[in-house]
Simulated scan of single mutants.
Amino acid sequence: MLPSCARLVARHGPAWRFGLLVLGYLLYLLFGAVVFSSVELPAEDLLRRELRELKRRFVAEHACLSEAQLEGFLARVLRASDAGVSALSNASDTWNWDFASALFFASTVLSTTGYGHAVPLSDGGKAFCIIYSVIGIPFTLLFLTAVVQRIIVYVTRRPVLYFHIRWGFSKQIVAIIHAVILGFVTVSCFFFIPAAVFSVLEEDWNFLESFYFCFISLSTIGLGDYVPGEGYNQKFRELYKLGITCYLLLGLIAMLVVLETFCELHELKKFRKMFYVKKDKEEDQVHIVEHDQLSFSSISDQAASMKDDQKVNEPFVSPQPTLNCDGSINN
């Protein structure tokens, strides 16, 4: 009875840590809501007042047009804009569903980024998007996992082991330094440099807005307030869209490699285990027995076969001659 109670206490010991984790997450969520509300609410109020004044002036200058007619026209234009279709005359030559744009849209769907700049308009397109996503998103996760698993062997594990074995440095220190350097290189190659490029190619974007787009995209948040290649006078638009698609896929892989590298740090593993439920040893033994490939019988059989193989592979050594009491030699 007492050992069972001790195991129960040991198993549910980290429960208070999990409670602190939940409380901390809720507080962080509330903190974000307070900051966003205090920062963005005045800007929204200013924009609303500007639009009201603009609409009032327009109705006053055009007496033949009622306010209801104007609002009906604007509502239709906004619905079309939400679907990615602009009513502006200089945007009539820009299509959202040519091959390059459709490829860019497919990549945002499979990576769950979802900018919302273009959406399926037909019922057939919406139905296909559901089926395509149900199959494609797990397929994308499998693809990314397989790619990251192979890359991290050459990018993280082998370099860390090389410096640890070759030069005798501490493995934990080498892993931390390597993770920091890898993170710095990734941020430089997939955030700072692309942000500088976007700030040049996109006329209305500054460096901060370009960096903001890179972060929102590679973190798969995808707010959709900034989408490259949507300018009306964009040169080589199809080639530009293809380049952005490649950038998003490569950047997502790089981000996953960096995250996996940091997750393998010993300190982070210990930190994560603080909030996990500890498994009972009896449950682990039952789990092992239930799996044939890890059962005790199979392990013993494998050990016995390994011993037999060692005996077979061992070179034959003739017995050393010994001297008997009578002086004769026993071979």
Rank of each mutant, 00 (worst) to 15 (best):
S295C: 10
K273H: 04
E260N: 14
Q293V: 07
E282A: 08
E290N: 14
E260I: 06
E267V: 05
M306H: 14
V277F: 02
N313Q: 13
I299D: 11
H291D: 07
E264Q: 14
H291E: 05
E260G: 13
D308M: 14
S318E: 13
P315N: 03
H287K: 05
Q293L: 08
K270L: 04
V289M: 11
M274Q: 04
V312C: 06
E290V: 10
Q285M: 04
F316A: 02
K279Q: 04
M306A: 11
S305K: 14
V258G: 00
D292C: 08
E314K: 15
Q285G: 09
A304F: 15
Y276R: 03
S318K: 15
V289N: 14
Q285L: 07
S295P: 07
S318L: 07
L259N: 11
S305T: 11
F262L: 03
V257F: 05
V286Y: 09
D301E: 09
E290A: 14
M255L: 12
V317L: 05
I253A: 04
K281W: 02
P319M: 03
I288V: 07
S305F: 14
I299E: 14
E264F: 09
D292T: 09
V258D: 01
L294S: 08
P315A: 05
E267F: 06
S295E: 01
H287A: 04
K270W: 03
E267N: 03
E283C: 01
M306C: 12
T261I: 00
L265P: 02
Y276E: 01
S300E: 05
E283H: 09
F271T: 03
D280R: 10
F316N: 08
A303R: 15
D284V: 10
A304W: 15
E314F: 13
Q285N: 09
K279N: 01
V317H: 12
E260K: 15
P319K: 08
F275S: 01
H266T: 07
P319L: 02
L259Q: 09
V312I: 04
V258R: 00
V317R: 12
D309L: 11
L294W: 13
F316Y: 10
M255G: 08
F275N: 00
V286G: 04
E267C: 11
S297L: 10
Q302I: 02
E314P: 12
D284K: 13
A304H: 14
S318C: 07
M274F: 07
V286D: 06
L256Y: 11
K281N: 03
V286M: 01
F316Q: 09
S300D: 13
E314W: 15
K311N: 09
S297D: 08
K269L: 02
F275P: 00
I288D: 11
S318D: 09
S298N: 08
Q285I: 02
M255I: 06
L265G: 02
D308F: 15
V277I: 00
R272E: 01
C263I: 15
K270P: 03
M306D: 07
E283Q: 07
P319G: 10
F271D: 02
